[in-house]
Computed example of a mutant assay.
Amino acid sequence: MVRFILNRLLVALAVLFTVAVVSFALLHLSGDLAIAIAGPDASAETVAQIRVQNGLDQPLLVQFSHWFWSALHLDFGRSFYFENTVMELVGQRMPITLQLGGVALLLALVVAIPLGVVAAVFRDSWVDRCAMFISVLGQAIPNFWFALVLILIFAVGLKWLPVAGNGSWQHFVLPAVALGYYAMPSLMRLTRSGMLDVLGADYIRTAHAKGLSAFKVVVKHGLRNAIIPVVALATVELGFMLGGSVVIESVFSLQGLGQLAWDSISRNDFPVVQAIVLIIAIFYIGLTFLADVLNAVLDPRLRSK
């Protein structure tokens, strides 16, 4: 088990370093950062001064070394626009994004797992077809369009929930539903396929032969084994939600990392953009690593791979 964890940890660190290199390179390949910071109407003297102040006159390898070493110490510099340190901005916005992602994943699991189990138990019935229809619809509808529909129905029409902001728990209901509905189809389909494989196993037929109730057979014996890949997918989906919350946060005006990333990109606030990309990557890689470890704990056969 220790060897398995060390191998996965080395892979995670290698991926993280690759993401850092790519995010640094993409910003520099997008054009002259000094001109982007100073503005198109700035004089040559101003551009040269900004280039020296931000170390943009040094070789790229030196710039990357300084930036990466500072990033390892959680020092991403100061924002060009907000005039705060980047970590102060991230610290203020991160709880909102984490709360949104956590609630969205919880809603997705609460709907997807029971729906997948029922669809597998009643295979090829109208229940199964309805579940698959919901799954296909969830992947076909863009999440920003679904978010706007939710606003029109529950905020503008029925006036049950607020339209935008993050002042109370009610402000997170519609964004969490919109974000969670996008992750629900894959979780539901994986639960259904896992349950179909498990329900055809010999030990399930033995459990039925012993006279156990259908509920115990499905939940205690079936779902416990079928849930293993769902755990891994759920952690990965949480990483996708944290990274893909830009659109939902923009639609509902939630002041999280996604909204901060959008504001920073539109204002050429490069230190904030680099920090957010790296921090989201850390979350995603960490959650993937956690999924691998949980799978190895739940299924000892994976430890030998």
Rank of each mutant, 00 (worst) to 15 (best):
L196W: 04
I204E: 01
T206M: 15
G167M: 13
L187F: 11
V156A: 13
V121P: 00
A214I: 11
P142W: 00
L98T: 02
P142K: 00
V177W: 01
L158S: 00
R205V: 15
L100Y: 05
G222V: 13
H171P: 12
S168V: 14
M132W: 12
S213I: 15
V173L: 15
R189N: 07
A214V: 13
L148V: 10
P185N: 06
Q92T: 11
F122K: 06
L98S: 02
D202A: 14
V217M: 08
V198W: 10
V163Y: 07
Q92F: 14
R129C: 08
V103T: 02
W145Q: 00
L179S: 03
F133W: 12
M188G: 03
D202Y: 10
R224I: 13
K210D: 04
S168R: 06
K159F: 14
A155I: 07
D128H: 04
K216S: 11
P95F: 13
K220R: 14
P185C: 07
G157T: 12
R205D: 13
N143P: 09
L187Q: 04
I227V: 15
L179E: 06
G211A: 06
A226Y: 05
L152M: 14
I113T: 03
A183S: 11
P95V: 11
S125E: 11
M184S: 07
G101S: 10
G211M: 10
V118K: 02
A140E: 09
A178K: 01
G211N: 05
L107A: 07
V163R: 01
V231S: 02
T191I: 08
D197V: 09
L179C: 06
L187E: 02
A178I: 09
N225D: 05
N166A: 15
I227H: 06
W160C: 10
P142A: 01
A108V: 08
A178F: 10
